[in-house]
């Protein structure tokens, strides 16, 4: 697996008993790319993320993150990856700052770096006014920001965000997009799952579409002039060309 790629996935599959949640997923990404992962509910987006973050072990296939094998070197993968799950909770008895210090210590950041990294993440996610507020008292939007702050705390090379703008107000969404852009500009690969096509259009320069656990479309790089319609069209085409989707085809037509 080449070191030029931040993620290399080769025939990655995951089954839960007889149910195949993800089948034969093959793709690769480069540093600085922002990739939107689209798909209907149950398409395999979260399973893909769970595999890439080593939360689950693949049933077959192989993948590497910045050259580290998902199974054999999972500890190193966890060190270079940042993950904001779709549903998570924060320790309610810790303040935002205490929580981020806790994560930094578990991530094994050097003592001299911890303070600097925590403050930097707090500033990047606009949490300055909330640093001494208990996590249990935060609104959904601010909890999401803390989730993002913990995901980028160690300046990961790959950032995986599962429906990150859920529950955010429009202003927070815009701030969030700015953070994502700046992280990608610093060389981080960002995988973003969302149901909001406009978000993909605004942020991503490449789209992967999953359906029934299979990768049905890899757009390659979208050009600067692509409109929202082009992402919507890509999504529809990808789903329609998938065999056995007649009823959905009709509804789209």
């Amino acid at each position: 697996m080449s070191a030029d790629f931040s993620i290399v996935s080769q025939s990655l599959s995951k089954s839960y008993g007889p149910h195949c949640a993800l089948s034969d997923l093959t793709f690769s990404t480069r540093a600085g790319e922002i990739i939107g992962i689209l798909g209907r509910n149950g398409a395999g987006k979260s399973t893909t993320f769970h595999l890439l973050t080593t939360y689950l072990k693949p049933s077959s296939g192989a993948a590497s993150v910045t050259g580290f094998d998902l199974v054999k070197e999972s500890k190193y993968v966890r060190q270079v990856i940042g993950y904001l799950p779709e549903s998570f909770n924060l320790y309610p008895e810790l303040t935002v700052e205490e929580y981020l210090f806790f994560i930094a210590r578990i991530r094994g950041l050097a003592k001299s770096d911890i303070q600097k990294q925590v403050i930097s993440s707090i500033e990047l996610c606009s949490l300055g006014d909330y640093r001494r507020v208990l996590c249990g008292l935060l609104s959904k939007g601010y909890r999401q920001r803390v989730g993002l702050a913990q995901a980028i705390l160690h300046r990961p090379k790959v950032i995986v965000l599962d429906e990150p703008t859920n529950g955010l107000d429009p202003e927070q969404v815009m701030e969030f997009r700015a953070v994502i852009d700046s992280l990608a500009a610093q060389g981080a690969t960002i995988l973003l799952s969302t149901h909001i096509l406009q978000e993909v259009q605004a942020l991503c320069r490449r789209v992967l579409v999953l359906d029934s656990g299979k990768l049905v479309l890899d757009s390659g790089g979208l050009s600067e002039g692509d409109s929202f319609d082009s992402v919507e069209r890509l999504f529809k085409q990808a789903i329609i060309t998938e065999p056995g989707r007649d009823s959905y085809k009709e509804s789209v037509k």
Partner: peptide, 14 residues
């Protein structure tokens, strides 16, 4: 059950 474990489980901790 509360979902805090999910974040702990993806950190570099065995």
């Amino acid at each position: 059950s509360s979902g805090t474990y999910q974040l702990l489980a993806i950190l570099p901790i065995s």
